[in-house]
Design a protein around this nucleic acid. Structure first.
Length: 109
DNA sequence: GGAATGACGATAA
DNA sequence: ATTATCGCCATTC
């Protein structure tokens, strides 16, 4: 049975979404909240800080393309490893931003 | 039930 | 560019 700690529904939704972000792609806190159509960037960050340890947290960054505070060094190594499109010290959101809907789409539109 | 918190976002100076 | 302030929202005390 499930004896796991059961986080709030909102936390589950956030973790579930972040867990399926493909390698080399990223989402901002605001995008996650918008995609879930609930909460806000602040609430998403709160969840990530509490339960983000089980998901690719480095694929969630701030609006400007900067990784979460205090984890910049750790995240940067992963971006380089996953080939995340970067623009200097920050991730290029124009190329790396991802949304679940485009997952099955081609690169055309 | 209410106040405080936090891996945010945008704007002002 | 950097620092400060306000608004937003779910979780926690």
């Amino acid at each position: 049975m499930k004896g796991e700690a059961l986080p709030s529904p909102f936390a589950e939704a956030v973790l579930d979404l972040v867990a399926r972000i493909p390698s080399g792609k990223v989402m901002t806190y605001g995008d996650v909240a918008g995609c879930l159509a609930m909460g806000g960037p602040r609430a998403v960050g709160t969840v990530m800080a509490r339960y983000g340890g089980g998901v690719p947290w480095h694929r969630v960054l701030r609006a400007g393309g900067y990784p979460p505070d205090g984890h910049e060094v750790e995240a940067r190594k992963r971006y380089r490893s996953e080939g995340t499109p970067m623009r200097g010290d920050r991730v290029d959101l124009d190329l790396a931003r991802w949304t679940p809907s485009q997952d099955h789409l081609g690169s055309q539109e």
